[in-house]
């Protein structure tokens, strides 16, 4: 295990932690937070694995920026739908999920 992979390892841990939270929690806000932790994990793996001693690879960095924008948009959309759902139903979780 090389020290350069420390970011990739952290990414693996974050992704798994996020996945755990995503499945365990029922509150939609918590699940969205867990999704964002998973996303950060995936981005860290993407950037971290590119550290291979051949200099900085700009392509994964660009991919991560694109990924972050997509994650922001998805999270925003999820929050919009969640708030509308909450206003219509008064619930913070999905039905049949209890």
């Amino acid at each position: 295990m090389s020290g350069a992979l420390v970011f990739a390892w952290s990414g693996v841990v974050l992704f798994s932690l996020g996945l755990f939270g995503f499945i365990v929690h029922r509150h939609l806000l918590r699940r969205l937070l867990a999704f964002n932790i998973m996303g950060s994990g995936a981005f860290l793996v993407l950037v971290g694995l590119a550290q291979d001693g051949r200099g900085i690879d700009p392509v994964p960095h660009a991919m991560v920026i694109t990924g972050i924008v997509v994650a922001v948009a998805s999270t925003a959309l999820a929050l919009v739908v969640f708030r509308r759902w909450y206003r219509a139903s008064g619930r913070t979780d999905l039905p049949e999920d209890t």
Binding site: W9, V12, V13, F15, S16, L17, L19, F20, I23, V24
Partner: peptide, 20 residues
Amino acid sequence: RVIFAGLLSLAIAGALGWAV
């Protein structure tokens, strides 16, 4: 559900770690 989530995330972490 907690057991399932724990096992699944451990399995994913293991597989990912191995892949890395």
